[in-house]
Simulated assay, not measured.
Amino acid sequence: MLGLSSLRTARLVAGASGLHRMVRRLNVMEVPDVLPWVKADELILTTGYPLRQLPSSLIGLVGDLDDRGLAAFAIKLARYIDELPADMLAEADRRGFPVILLPEDVGFDDILNQVLTEILSKQAAALAHSDEVHRTIMATVLAGGGLDEVTAKAATLLSQAVVVAIGTEGAILASAGPEGERMSGMAELVKTELPARGVVNLAGGGTAIVVPITAGDFDHGWLLAARRDGMHATDTLTILERAAAAAALTITQKLAVTAVEARYQSDLFRDLVEGRLDDVERVLDQARWFGWKLQASLVLTVTTVQPVPNQSPRSRRDDLERFAAAWRLALEGHIAGAAVVVVSDQVLTLLPVDQPEA
Rank of each mutant, 00 (worst) to 15 (best):
L7D: 13
R8Y: 14
R25P: 07
N27H: 12
V28I: 12
V28Y: 10
V31L: 11
L35E: 13
W37L: 15
L43Q: 09
L51S: 12
G63D: 14
D67C: 10
G69S: 13
K76Q: 15
L77K: 03
Y80M: 09
P85S: 08
E91G: 07
F97G: 10
I100F: 09
F108K: 01
D109N: 06
A128Y: 04
D131R: 12
T136W: 00
G144S: 11
E149A: 15
E149M: 08
V150F: 01
V163C: 09
G167W: 05
G167M: 06
T168A: 08
G170A: 01
A174M: 02
P178I: 06
G198I: 01
V210K: 02
V211A: 13
D217S: 05
L223N: 07
D229C: 13
H232G: 12
A246N: 06
A248W: 02
K254D: 15
L255V: 04
A256T: 11
V257G: 02
A259H: 09
V273Y: 07
V283W: 00
D285K: 03
A287T: 11
G291C: 12
W292H: 07
V302Q: 00
D319A: 15
F323R: 01
A324Y: 07
A330N: 12
A336P: 03
D345K: 01
D345S: 04
Q346C: 01
L351I: 11
